[in-house]
């Protein structure tokens, strides 16, 4: 297992956001966490990458316990995180955003290779290198956010709502890029409200409701699950 989350409890102040959440991701997989707004999807990702501290429980990456590791170290260990709302640096150029993505790289030599790989997935970024990132369109910002995370050549990529606010065509494009990134050897943990798309690309899925995992299984199975169909796929049972 590349990632194992065990009995994770996270609280914001006195409000418990995650109640004993547990899930795991195997190397090479695309795994998705689906659920409604406020179910705890983003909090799960933030706890993995060290942005929030777990009250109890454990996050294991390979064989290392990273529950208390500072966020900037976790990046160096090979976990990339594309946060909710993209959080690109609007005050920096596209090129500088990508450079920041490579901030943690120890091997400056392979920097050019990382740039090339990102440009191959997102050719549009190459045309916009000198532009301020704040001037990009929504779709381009999402591409930049993903490209930026890929600059550290992560082994595990956490994606938080990559489809948010994008047109259906762009959503298709982003998801096919996610699959391509995965085929090239990056394990993906995907958080989505767009359960329909998420269940198409993922091999396994977990369903979160108010901070608890209520369902899990192969994505194909969950697609047929009546409860999932009614609650997340908008289909009458």
């Amino acid at each position: 297992m590349i990632l194992q989350v065990k009995d994770l409890n996270v609280a914001y102040g006195s409000i418990l956001a995650l109640h004993g959440v547990a899930f795991e991701v195997a190397e090479g997989e695309i795994v998705t966490l689906i659920g409604a707004n406020g179910a705890g999807k983003s909090t799960s990702l933030r706890a993995i990458s060290g942005l929030v501290r777990a009250r109890s429980g454990q996050v294991m990456y390979h064989d290392a316990d990273i529950t208390r590791t500072p966020a900037h170290r976790i990046v160096q260990m090979g976990i990339g995180h594309v946060p909710e709302g993209r959080k690109i640096f609007a005050n920096l150029t596209v090129a500088e955003n990508l450079e920041m993505g490579a901030y943690a790289r120890a091997d400056r030599g392979s920097l050019q290779a990382a740039f090339d790989r990102v440009f191959k997935s997102f050719p549009r970024l190459k045309e916009r290198l000198k532009q301020n990132a704040g001037t990009l369109s929504g779709g381009e910002q999402q591409m930049l956010a993903m490209g930026r995370a890929l600059m550290s050549t992560p082994k595990l990529l956490l994606l938080d709502e990559p489809s948010m606010g994008l047109s259906p065509i762009l959503v298709q494009e982003i998801f096919s890029i996610i699959q391509e990134i995965n085929r090239q050897g990056t394990t993906v943990l995907l958080v989505e409200q767009n359960a329909y798309m998420a269940l198409q690309v993922a091999s396994r899925a977990y369903v979160l409701e108010t901070g608890r995992i209520v369902l899990s299984g192969p994505a194909a199975e969950l697609r047929e699950n009546p409860r999932v169909r009614a609650a997340y796929l908008g289909q009458a049972v």
Partner: peptide, 20 residues
């Protein structure tokens, strides 16, 4: 550049591996 990134958003900067 990291200073400018941090001034924009601490969490996003952390996710770059920047020690804020």
């Amino acid at each position: 550049k990291a200073m400018r990134a941090v001034s924009f958003d601490h969490d996003a900067a952390r996710l770059m591996g920047i020690n804020v």
